[in-house]
Simulated scan of single mutants.
Amino acid sequence: MKPFTESMLNQCRKYMFNFFDYLPTKYQASARDWQVRKFVWAFKDGKCAVSAAQLVAKKIREQFGTSASDMVFVCIPASSQRKNEIRYREFSEEVARLSGAVNGYSHITVEGERLAIHESKSGKHVNDVQVINFDKEFFKDKKVLVFDDVITRGYSYARFACHLESFGASVIGGMFLAKTLFV
C-alpha cells in the first residue's frame, strides 16, 4: 500500500461523500450490490452520464446551496484522454449546468495512458506513462470540489487534491459515486 503524507491525510479529513457502497467482484453479491456494480460500470463506459450527473448535482445543491456557483467541479482523470472524455465530458457539463458550479473539465488534459488500478494487479507490465496537464492559472484561488467514480482508500483523491492545492486552489472535499467495501 502506498504511504499517505500528512497533507494527503488532511485531504481525507475534508468533506467526503459517496452515493453507494461498491462490493468488489471477488465477493458474493446481493441483487443490490449487482445494481451498484452495473451502474458504476455503465458510468465508466459513459452510458449513464446524465443520470449520474443529476444525482451528483442534486447533492451539490443540497450540500452547498447557492455557494455552488463559487466552486469548480473537477474529475480525477481516467486512465487515458479517450476514456476521460467518454467518462467525464458530458457528465461534467451536466453537473455544472444543473448545480451552478464551474466546469473544470477543459482545464485538465491527459497524455499517454496508464493501466487502471484493477488492471495493474493482474501482473501486466507496461512502460507507458500518463501525464496530467493542469491549467494552473485557472485553478489558482479557486474553491474546488473533486469527483471520482470510485474511492477505495483515498490515495488518488488525496494526491490529486494536494496537487490542485499546490497551484493555489482550495479543495473543499470530494464526491464519489461509490466507495469500495472491504469484507
Rank of each mutant, 00 (worst) to 15 (best):
15 Y>K: 02
16 M>W: 07
16 M>L: 10
17 F>K: 14
19 F>E: 09
19 F>C: 05
24 P>W: 03
27 Y>C: 03
28 Q>V: 06
30 S>H: 03
32 R>Q: 06
32 R>P: 00
33 D>C: 02
34 W>A: 02
35 Q>K: 11
37 R>E: 13
37 R>S: 10
41 W>E: 12
44 K>E: 06
45 D>T: 02
50 V>N: 06
51 S>M: 07
53 A>Y: 03
54 Q>K: 11
58 K>L: 12
60 I>P: 06
62 E>G: 01
62 E>K: 05
65 G>T: 07
66 T>P: 10
68 A>R: 02
69 S>Q: 06
74 V>Q: 11
76 I>H: 14
77 P>L: 00
77 P>Y: 00
79 S>K: 04
79 S>F: 00
81 Q>C: 12
82 R>S: 11
87 R>E: 08
89 R>H: 12
89 R>F: 08
91 F>P: 08
94 E>K: 14
95 V>T: 05
97 R>N: 11
100 G>E: 14
100 G>R: 10
100 G>C: 07
101 A>E: 06
103 N>D: 15
104 G>E: 10
105 Y>A: 08
105 Y>C: 07
109 T>E: 13
111 E>K: 13
112 G>V: 09
113 E>A: 02
113 E>M: 01
115 L>Q: 11
117 I>H: 11
117 I>D: 15
129 V>A: 08
130 Q>H: 04
130 Q>T: 05
